[in-house]
């Protein structure tokens, strides 16, 4: 979780990631953020994020992102 928070803080220092649970739906994260984040997550956690997983539900909160990472690590 610490790694993820660090990645997010570097990507968007102006966003409160612990509070916001609708990061994509509220527009805080846009497509640039998501694309950047996909690259960072794949590198940091050595996972592959497929097209079917690049959907708002997986990026709406820190918890959702972490859940995606864990699921892909277990696959």
């Amino acid at each position: 979780m610490e790694t993820l928070l660090k990645i997010l803080a570097e990507l968007r220092p102006d966003v409160d990631f612990e509070e916001n649970k609708e990061l994509v739906d509220s527009g805080e994260l846009d497509s640039f953020d998501i694309v950047s984040l996909v690259g960072e997550l794949c590198e940091a956690y050595e996972i592959q994020i497929g097209a079917e997983d690049i959907i708002p539900e997986n990026f709406n909160s820190v918890e959702a992102i972490m859940a995606l990472v864990k699921r892909l690590q277990e696959d």
Partner: peptide, 23 residues
């Protein structure tokens, strides 16, 4: 096209393509 983009993103390729699937 979209499947290829997702694969390239997942492979960590550098890009300036930041569009959604719909776009």
């Amino acid at each position: 096209f979209w499947r290829e983009i997702a694969k390239r993103l997942s492979n960590g390729e550098s890009t300036n393509f930041f569009f959604s699937q719909e776009d």
